[in-house]
Amino acid sequence: MRVLVAMMALAAVAACGADGEPIQPTMNSTITLSNHGIGATTHVAATRGPVTFGLGLGL
């Protein structure tokens, strides 16, 4: 849990421009419906130069 909070804090600091120009984050969400039920996934990413930081969650 601490690692997740630390990663989210790092992403927030990088996205707000504390270390330079602000980074525009991207977000993709998918909701699927099948015979097995409903599924949802979300992925948030921020890219700066050759480095991409992303975080995904699937339910």
Score class of each variant (00 low, 15 high):
Met1Asn: 02
Met1Lys: 02
Met1Tyr: 03
Arg2Asp: 13
Arg2Ser: 12
Arg2Lys: 07
Arg2Val: 14
Val3Ile: 15
Val3Trp: 14
Val3Cys: 09
Val3Phe: 15
Val3Asp: 14
Leu4Ser: 02
Leu4Tyr: 03
Leu4Trp: 03
Val5Ser: 05
Ala6Asp: 13
Ala6Gln: 08
Met7Gln: 04
Met7Arg: 04
Met8Asp: 07
Met8Gly: 03
Met8Thr: 10
Ala9Pro: 01
Ala9His: 07
Ala9Phe: 08
Leu10Ala: 13
Leu10Val: 12
Leu10Thr: 11
Leu10His: 03
Leu10Cys: 07
Leu10Tyr: 05
Ala11Glu: 11
Ala12Asn: 07
Val13Met: 06
Val13Ile: 14
Val13Asp: 06
Ala14Leu: 15
Ala14Trp: 09
Ala14Thr: 09
Ala14Val: 12
Ala15Met: 07
Gly17His: 03
Gly17Leu: 03
Asp19Gly: 05
Asp19Met: 12
Gly20Asp: 02
Glu21Asn: 02
Pro22Trp: 10
Pro22His: 06
Pro22Gln: 12
Ile23Phe: 01
Ile23Val: 15
Gln24Pro: 01
Gln24Gly: 02
Gln24Asn: 05
Gln24His: 08
Gln24Trp: 07
Gln24Leu: 12
Pro25Ala: 00
Pro25Ile: 01
Thr26Ala: 13
Met27Asp: 02
Met27Lys: 06
Met27Asn: 04
Asn28Thr: 10
Asn28Val: 10
Asn28Asp: 12
Thr30Asn: 05
Thr30Pro: 00
Thr30Lys: 03
Ile31Trp: 01
Thr32His: 04
Thr32Tyr: 04
Thr32Gly: 11
Leu33Met: 12
Leu33Trp: 09
Leu33Tyr: 11
Ser34Thr: 15
Ser34Cys: 10
Asn35Thr: 09
Asn35Ala: 12
His36Pro: 02
His36Gln: 15
His36Phe: 12
Gly37Asp: 01
Gly37Phe: 01
Gly37Tyr: 02
Ile38Ser: 02
Ile38Gly: 01
Gly39Lys: 08
Gly39Tyr: 07
Thr41Asn: 09
Thr41Asp: 10
Thr41Tyr: 07
Thr41Trp: 04
Thr42Arg: 05
Thr42Asp: 08
His43Tyr: 11
His43Lys: 15
His43Gly: 06
His43Ala: 15
Val44Ala: 12
Val44Tyr: 09
Val44Asp: 03
Val44Gln: 08
Val44Thr: 12
Ala45Trp: 00
Ala45Asp: 01
Ala45Gly: 01
Ala46Phe: 09
Ala46His: 03
Thr47Gly: 00
Thr47Val: 05
Arg48Tyr: 08
Arg48Leu: 09
Arg48Gln: 13
Gly49Thr: 00
Pro50Phe: 04
Pro50Asp: 08
Pro50Gln: 05
Val51Asn: 04
Val51Thr: 10
Val51Trp: 13
Thr52Asp: 05
Thr52Ile: 09
Thr52Tyr: 03
Thr52Ser: 11
Phe53Met: 11
Phe53Pro: 00
Gly54Gln: 14
Gly54Tyr: 14
Gly54Ala: 15
Gly54Cys: 13
Leu55Tyr: 14
Leu55Arg: 04
Leu55Lys: 04
Gly56Lys: 15
Leu57Lys: 05
Leu57Tyr: 10
Leu57Val: 14
Leu57Ser: 10
Gly58Glu: 14
Gly58Ala: 14
Gly58Lys: 12
Gly58Tyr: 09
Gly58Trp: 13
Leu59Met: 08
Leu59His: 03
Leu59Gly: 06
Leu59Asp: 09
Leu59Tyr: 07
Leu59Val: 12
